[in-house]
Nucleic acid binder design. Structure first.
Length: 318
DNA sequence: AATACCTTCAACCGCTGCGTC
DNA sequence: CGACGCAGCGGTTGAAGGTAT
């Protein structure tokens, strides 16, 4: 037996809220609080379901909400926490006073993902795209094409954005305007773009001094590469992963914002992974579980936001 | 000026976890 | 212990406004 719907869909209004509805909801909540969302629309004289009222209140009407642009500090916090927590928007938003999970999620999806991609950083793993190439290069030749194909699938959207919206043309950058080699042209523009990306990446591997695909990677010292505006150095071991960015902004200058996006703090105590793992194992009591679920106690004075180590940035939850 | 395309973000949907009975 | 109801979460959608052609 399925669950009952949260409300009778036929009798409720949907879509944009009017100022009058906002006024009714706000004044009702100011007088009676937010207990029992199911009853609130009925008592407040609204033709809405309780869920819709709760969302409108928590995402828009709450008096403590900020509505303006995200600051650089807020963006920094989002990116740092996302690298550790993944898409746990409620926990991330709990660290940003006045911001809702919906705000954070929308800002991530519309701005920050593209910003990171534009800096050559994969927004899912928070590693530079060039690090992926290094990883591909460590594999024996038979595995390389398949992994590269899979990886390109993951980054397709971001790469397409770079290529189309930001007017970056791999064809011109990599081949000095010589054009795409024969056989890359397709009826479908996207397929052609993917072919350009594949060719560009393979070309980049050769030009950046990475080992040829038919030889094993030598993880001695650090090898530098330049892909998509990011210079990286890779000691070779995942555990020791560390890179510094000299990322370029749109004008070609070094961006301090970009430098911070990938850099793990040198110092570490406690660590967030342990806290998150602890949370997922279950807290000591239900109150604690509720607190950590809502992100209210996960980041206390013992574990500063910036006390992350390199491993913390290898988002293990994705 | 008209149209197509893109971006943003409010709102919705379905699922999950928790509390209560 | 299981069923049920509610609140909260993350993913997705679509309307509205902006920008490019």
């Amino acid at each position: 037996m399925g669950r009952l719907p949260c409300c009778e869909k036929d009798n409720v209004k949907r879509g944009q809220w009017t100022p009058e509805e906002d006024q009714k909801l706000s004044s009702y909540i100011a007088q009676h609080g937010t207990r029992n969302w199911r009853l609130i629309p009925k008592h407040a004289g609204l033709q809405r379901c309780g869920k819709s009222c709760r969302l409108r209140w928590t995402n828009y009407l709450r008096p403590d909400l900020k509505h303006g642009q995200f600051s650089e500090a807020e963006e920094h916090t989002i990116v740092t926490l996302h690298s550790v927590l993944g898409n746990r928007w409620a926990v991330i938003a709990a660290q940003l006073p006045g911001r809702t999970d919906n705000d954070v999620k929308n800002h991530w999806n519309t701005k920050l993902k593209k910003k990171l991609s534009g800096m050559g950083i994969d927004p899912v793993t928070h590693k530079p795209f060039s690090h992926l190439i290094t990883e591909i290069a460590t594999l024996p030749p038979p595995q390389v094409p398949n992994l590269a194909e899979a990886a390109l699938g993951c980054f397709k959207d971001e790469m397409l954005h770079l290529l189309t919206k930001r007017r970056i043309n791999i064809q011109l950058q990599q081949y000095g305007g010589g054009g795409v080699p024969a056989g890359m042209k397709h009826e479908d523009g996207k397929d052609e773009t993917i072919e350009k990306i594949k060719f560009g990446l393979s070309k980049a591997i050769k030009e950046t001094g990475m080992p040829p695909l038919d030889k094993p990677w030598e993880p001695v010292g650090a090898t530098s590469g330049y892909i998509g505006g990011v210079f990286g150095s890779f000691p070779g071991s995942d555990n020791g992963f560390h890179y510094e960015l000299a990322s370029l902004d749109n004008e070609g200058g070094a961006s301090p914002w970009g430098q911070s996006m990938c850099m793990a703090a040198e110092h570490h105590h406690g660590g967030l992974h342990e806290k998150v793992a602890e949370e997922e194992r279950g807290g000591e009591d239900s109150v604690n579980r509720k607190e950590t679920r809502n992100g209210e106690s996960m980041f206390n004075s013992e574990c500063s936001l910036w006390d992350l180590q390199s491993n913390d940035l290898m988002n293990p939850m994705i």
